[in-house]
Computed example of a mutant assay.
Amino acid sequence: MHLIGELDLTTCDLLVTALSQAARPDRDLVIDCTRLDFIDAAGIAGLVRAARMIGHGQLRLTNMHAALAEIIDLLDLPATVPNLRHDST
């Protein structure tokens, strides 16, 4: 899956709908964030929800811009959502 543009209150429902179709319990899900420019609290909540949907599978956010990865780290999401991982560019 690829995220493009902004993941915010106005687009989060689209993400949740797409993830509910793509996510499978206990299977990894990779989301390419190369073209993701912005994320707000609603977007973060959508990603957390996706991580919970896949249970023991890993939600991997790849190619995150450093500023977006910093938000994930500041919120300490990998500690509170153990199956969420990211890398930054």
Score class of each variant (00 low, 15 high):
His2Thr: 05
Leu3Arg: 07
Ile4Cys: 05
Ile4Lys: 14
Gly5Val: 04
Glu6Trp: 05
Glu6His: 10
Leu7Gly: 00
Leu9Phe: 11
Thr10Tyr: 13
Thr10Arg: 12
Thr11Val: 09
Cys12Glu: 14
Leu14Ala: 15
Leu14Ser: 12
Leu15Ile: 09
Val16Trp: 00
Thr17Pro: 00
Leu19Arg: 07
Ser20Lys: 14
Gln21Arg: 11
Ala22Cys: 04
Ala23Tyr: 01
Arg24Met: 11
Arg24Asn: 10
Asp28Gly: 02
Leu29Gln: 05
Ile31Phe: 11
Asp32Ser: 06
Thr34Phe: 07
Asp37Ala: 15
Asp37Glu: 15
Phe38Cys: 06
Phe38Lys: 14
Asp40Phe: 00
Ala42Leu: 06
Ile44Thr: 01
Ile44Leu: 01
Ala45Trp: 00
Ala45Gln: 14
Gly46Thr: 06
Gly46Met: 04
Leu47Pro: 04
Val48Leu: 02
Val48Asp: 01
Val48Thr: 06
Val48Lys: 00
Arg49Val: 05
Arg52Gln: 12
Met53Glu: 08
Met53Asp: 07
Ile54Cys: 02
Ile54Met: 02
Gly55Glu: 10
His56Gln: 15
His56Leu: 13
Gln58Met: 07
Gln58Cys: 08
Leu59Ala: 04
Arg60His: 12
Arg60Trp: 11
Arg60Ile: 13
Leu61Lys: 09
Leu61Phe: 04
Thr62Val: 14
His65Asn: 13
Ala66Tyr: 03
Ala67Asp: 15
Leu68Ser: 05
Leu68Trp: 05
Glu70Thr: 14
Glu70Cys: 08
Ile72Pro: 02
Ile72Gly: 07
Asp73Leu: 09
Leu74Tyr: 06
Leu74Trp: 02
Asp76Thr: 13
Asp76Tyr: 03
Leu77Asp: 09
Pro78Gln: 12
Pro78Glu: 12
Ala79Arg: 15
Thr80Asp: 06
Val81Leu: 11
Val81Trp: 04
Pro82Lys: 09
Pro82Thr: 03
Asn83Glu: 10
Leu84Glu: 06
Arg85Pro: 00
Arg85Tyr: 08
His86Glu: 03
Asp87Pro: 01
Thr89Lys: 14
